[in-house]
Amino acid sequence: MTRHFLGDTATLLGRSLRHISRSPDTIITTAIMPIAFLLLFVYVFGGAIETGSDRYVNYLLPGILLITVVSGISYTAYRLFLDLKGGTFERFQSMPIARSAVLWAHVLTSLVANLISLVVVVLVALAMGFRSGAGVLGWLAVTGIMLLFTLALTWLAVIPGLTATSVDGASAFSYPLILLPFVSSAFVPTDSMPGPVRAFAEHQPVTSIVNTIRALFAGQPVGGQVWIALAWCAGLLVVAYAGAMAVHHRKVG
């Protein structure tokens, strides 16, 4: 069964990438909300937020990048759901292919699509005055963390994609995730928050990831935060992947 895994994944990846290239609106809509947040917070609220950094856009961008990914992964659930509903999924599963290749192709497509959306958002931020002191290694580290984060969340998105009973259900799961950055250090420093909220904010995954990326962008040492961030991403990845595989196994036996 695994004999053809790489070849089948590549073939199916080619199919999904064609989907994206023929409906680039999915990438645009993914980037619209984060860009709207960027504009809103920099030009409306930003002046009243005291972050201690010289430019608010520098402070804000890491959180916006996470929001971009969260809004992007729902397309994986959406596309997977359409494959299931349209019978394409069953067609593939009844063929002599490596069955998990069908999921991997969707997941890799998500990585590509989200990477493009992230580049779009970063370009907008640069136009708004975002500047980074990070070198090539710093940017590579940011890219690596974002890809790991995307990979983990995409496997999470596979679960509603396989189990949803409606299009809305398939994509609605990401709405609560979009709120997580708001209760973190993404928009405002956590020390202005009341006790319990602050405790939650400082111990949820977004804060450690945002702080790590912020430090990388600023060209400062990342400290212990990076390990917490990586642990969150890796842990989420393992749990989401196991969950998705369990659901997939139940679905196709």
Partner: peptide, 9 residues
């Protein structure tokens, strides 16, 4: 299958 499982795009 019951519904034409073709890729519309």
């Amino acid at each position: 299958g019951q519904f034409a499982a073709v890729d519309e795009i």
